Simulated scan of single mutants.
Amino acid sequence: MEPHNRSTSALVMASVLFCLGPAAWASVPTSGTLHAERDCEAFVSKKKKSNPDKAHLEPGDAYVILEVNRPNQPDWIRVRVEDANPPERWVEANCGRQSVSAATPVDDGQPEPETPIDPDDPSLCSTAGLQDSFKLALSWQPAFCESHRSKKECAVNFPATFQSAGNFTLHGLWPNRESCGINYGNCEHRRKPREFCDYPDLGLNPEVAKQLSQVMPGTASCLERHEWFKHGTCQVDWDMDQYYEVAMDLVRQFNGAGISKYMAANMGKQVSMEDFLQQVDNGLGPEARDRLQLSCSGGKLTDVLISLPAQIEPGASLGEMVRRAPPDFRSKCPSRFTIDAVGFSR
């Protein structure tokens, strides 16, 4: 009788699903990451198996999960394939390993209980789009080069016009997640190579690449590749070009708020921390200093990190974004520090 019972159960289940109709198979929005383990075709429509641009998953790469076709043991997963058009694609669930956060069924008009996300889940520290703030990381290039003289961007004959004019240079724009500390990053789970130039070329728009080489001298050592794969992959709002366009605009706003004039006027001189912080307040608004982190080496200012909110609107006022960011002042500098001049000290 046991086989008969199993057959009867299967018929009953089929009847139930038929009565429920398509809603029984409704897709489920989900957050998480698919770590591709094989080359899989990525479909616009899983039903029609349409793939107009022949998009595939690359083994070893990670993809943001958007939804699954059913909450329990899905056989189709919708992911974001950045180079595809459109980027939202369906792939078979067995294409890779899944790190999935909370899933919430499609809204059917009935309230659904929220599934809390475990803040200690380590997979969240490499899942894109979960930042709760940003950091704009700026370098004072002359001081950086004092301890990195072998870097191409620090060579004697390297053009130094941008930093000679008193401008801070771009180190990076970092999405942050407080519960991850400094470990929120690498959201494509790409193995870090020995040298930055061993990362794949980003294929930036030529005009963006040209501007970036000025604002970020580290491009001479492929810093932009490292910054994208470590930090840029953890935000989901911009492609590579847009990410660096936003970052460059923020750097220019900071320098243009009277900071570059102050730095140029004090190159080779010692200044008080209070005087420097007052310049930042004057340029970006009262209490902007409370959103800074300062680093020094050998009594010289080397880095400035600026706290920004979790969402950045391209073209928005840097001062306004700083005002909306959580206070997080820290300093590794003495009360008086030197603003190093271009060129190596003896």
Rank of each mutant, 00 (worst) to 15 (best):
A325S: 11
A62H: 07
A42Q: 00
E188L: 11
P113V: 12
L284T: 00
P200C: 11
W25C: 11
R330L: 14
S15A: 05
S272D: 04
P59V: 03
R336D: 07
V251C: 09
S213W: 09
E320K: 08
H35S: 02
A84E: 01
N5E: 15
C296S: 01
L308A: 11
A209T: 04
P87Y: 15
P286F: 08
A24C: 02
G60K: 03
L223R: 07
R194A: 12
F134V: 07
R194N: 05
F254N: 00
D132H: 10
P334H: 10
E58F: 13
T127E: 04
N255K: 03
F168A: 09
E227R: 06
D340E: 10
P327G: 13
G32S: 09
L20D: 05
G258W: 11
L66M: 10
C40E: 05
C180L: 02
K47Y: 08
P159I: 09
D249S: 10
E146V: 08
L202Y: 10
D275C: 09
S295R: 13
T8W: 08
N255E: 07
K269D: 05
F337Y: 10
V304N: 06
N183C: 13
N282Q: 02
S272E: 05
T127D: 05
P142W: 07
Q270V: 14
V79K: 00
G21T: 14
P200W: 12
N255V: 08
R80K: 09
V322E: 06
S45E: 04
E41I: 03
A209D: 06
A310P: 01
G60R: 15
E41K: 13
P116R: 08
V100H: 15
D328R: 12
S307L: 05
N266T: 02
M263V: 14
S164A: 11
D198L: 14
I182M: 15
I339T: 02
K261L: 11
F144S: 14
N94W: 14
M216K: 04
L284P: 01
E82H: 03
S179P: 02
P3T: 14
A316S: 09
D290P: 12
M13R: 12
R194F: 09
E112A: 08
L318I: 07
H56R: 13
E41S: 08
Y184C: 07
N69K: 03
W228F: 11
S295W: 13
D75I: 01
R177Q: 01
P3E: 13
D39H: 08
D53F: 15
V12K: 07
G60P: 02
L20T: 06
L11C: 14
R190C: 08
A128W: 03
G203N: 01
F337N: 05
W76A: 00
G96I: 09
S345Y: 03
E224Y: 09
W76S: 01
H56P: 07
L34T: 12
A128D: 10
A257T: 01
A26P: 00
V106C: 02
